[in-house]
Nucleic acid binder design. Structure first.
Length: 435
DNA sequence: TGCTCCCGCCAACGC
DNA sequence: GCGTTGGCGGGAGCA
């Protein structure tokens, strides 16, 4: 059985994490933007967690169904915060003593810091920890993980490392969201984000509340083929082309004059509506909660890649198309910004899966972020045999080498061809793609 | 300064 | 009523 070899991303100490209460009191809001001194505190976990996981247990878990035996939660050893004395230390201590919730929150952060620092310390030294002791820098700051270390993409890699790429069909791998959240040291909310995107590709499916089933990449080709078909029905290729050409028409002063909320998307909306009429799934009322879900958005985002040529989609264009679909009446700037934020979330997960990579496209108006599909190119290989080669080989080789499956997120768009895999395009291709 | 996206509030949902 | 789910946007880190 082949597994994602992301062992470096899974620290045995993860298992030492206690669990934290999901719902904290209002006090946490006050503490949200403050670095308060927190005395570690023993707490009763809301949900049961496993006992301490040894490395051998973890390595077993990577390729096998995670055990589902609820056990007594493991309490953490009290450990004093290394925060140095400061003029506000008394105040901090008082606040800490007054608010158990704040203590919980900070202890949680501290635990996650430990996990992250250990994790990244073992990943080839490619990531700066910012924890080099110069004897001057505040130790608290040193231990605080950077934004990148807390990214959804990295979290997704850790999530994926827990399960086999191709699980044995007879073996059912169940995922407990609580368990995963606890072991990865994050809030359940973040796991929902990942699971929703994975669900859009049918890598997982929901069994019951808090319970998902892991399918791995077994059915990815079929899912992509189905999504491509749906994308064609939605006429996404035409919508992409339409918006792209419209943007070109409004470069410069013309663009400045127009109200952002009055962009001439009417024709695009028509395209969108025509596409919608094809599918029964769109009978659901627009603007419903489900229609805007991350899972649906992720599906549509993937559809855009599958039908576009070349397989590079600018974020803003994707956002516009998705707004068309769900917010036809209120295509304002805030909706646009929200959509972009969500697309970043989705893109982080898809990047972790090795399906897309971050690029930049250069247009007359400047350089803008985009994502390029680097996953399987054809829905099916010759003779109908699923072609997993592109993304999976890249992901697997990276994983086997002990590297995260994430591709270089800052790579410049070099090749417009969707056929070439990263690094395989010729100099001629690169010349063609020059702006 | 703009891009990126973490974080957690809070409402919808479902049991 | 309460726990789960997840939309949403503020705002901070980063280039």
């Amino acid at each position: 059985m082949s597994c994602l070899k992301l062992k470096d991303l899974v620290s045995p100490r993860i298992g030492k994490c206690d669990t934290w209460p999901e719902s904290l009191s209002e006090d946490k809001r006050a503490a949200r933007k403050e670095n308060l001194f927190m005395e570690p505190k023993r707490i009763s976990p809301k949900t049961p967690v496993k006992n301490e996981l040894t490395p051998s247990v973890l390595s077993w878990r990577k390729c096998c169904t995670p055990d589902r035996v609820p056990v007594t939660p493991v309490k953490l050893t009290d450990k004093l915060s290394p925060e140095p004395w400061s003029p506000t230390a008394n105040l901090k201590m008082l606040i800490s003593a007054a608010s158990p919730d704040i203590r919980d929150r900070e202890r949680k952060k501290e635990l996650f810091r430990q996990i992250e620092n250990e994790t990244l310390g073992s990943v080839g030294g490619g990531v700066q920890l910012g924890a080099i002791d110069d004897g001057v820098t505040d130790e608290f700051e040193q231990q605080r993980p950077s934004r990148k270390q807390k990214s959804l993409g990295l979290l997704c890699q850790k999530f994926l490392a827990r399960y086999p790429i191709y699980p044995i069909s007879t073996e059912k791998t169940e995922i407990s969201l609580d368990e995963v959240a606890t072991e990865l040291g994050v809030e359940r909310r973040r796991i929902y984000d990942i699971v929703n995107v994975l669900e859009s590709l049918q890598l997982v499916s929901r069994l019951a509340k808090n319970q998902y089933s892991w399918h791995g990449l077994l059915g990815l080709q079929q899912t992509l083929a189905a999504l491509k078909k749906r994308g064609e029905q939605h006429r996404y290729a035409e919508q992409l082309s339409y918006i792209h050409h419209k943007e070109l028409d409004f470069i410069g002063e013309e663009m400045e004059k127009r109200e952002p909320a009055q962009e001439p998307w009417t024709s695009c909306q028509e395209l969108s509506r025509e596409g919608k009429s094809v599918e029964a799934e769109n009978k659901s009322a627009m603007n419903s909660r489900k229609d805007k879900s991350l899972r649906i958005m992720s599906e549509k985002f993937v559809m855009l890649f599958l039908v576009s040529e070349p397989k590079t989609v600018a974020l803003d264009i994707a956002a516009k198309i998705l707004i068309e679909e769900s917010q036809q009446d209120t295509a304002d700037n805030s909706k646009f910004k929200t959509k972009i934020r969500r697309l970043y979330d989705i893109a982080n997960v898809l990047t972790s899966l090795g399906l897309i990579k971050k690029v930049h496209v250069t247009e007359e108006r400047g350089r803008k972020p985009a994502f390029k599909w680097v996953g399987p190119v054809r829905p099916h290989g010759p003779d109908g045999i699923p072609d997993h080669s592109a993304a999976l080989s890249a992901s697997a080789s990276s994983a086997e080498a002990g590297f995260p499956v994430t591709v270089n997120t800052k790579e410049r768009l070099e090749c417009p061809s969707s056929i070439h895999t990263p690094g395989s395009c010729t100099s001629q291709c690169k010349a063609q793609s020059a702006p």
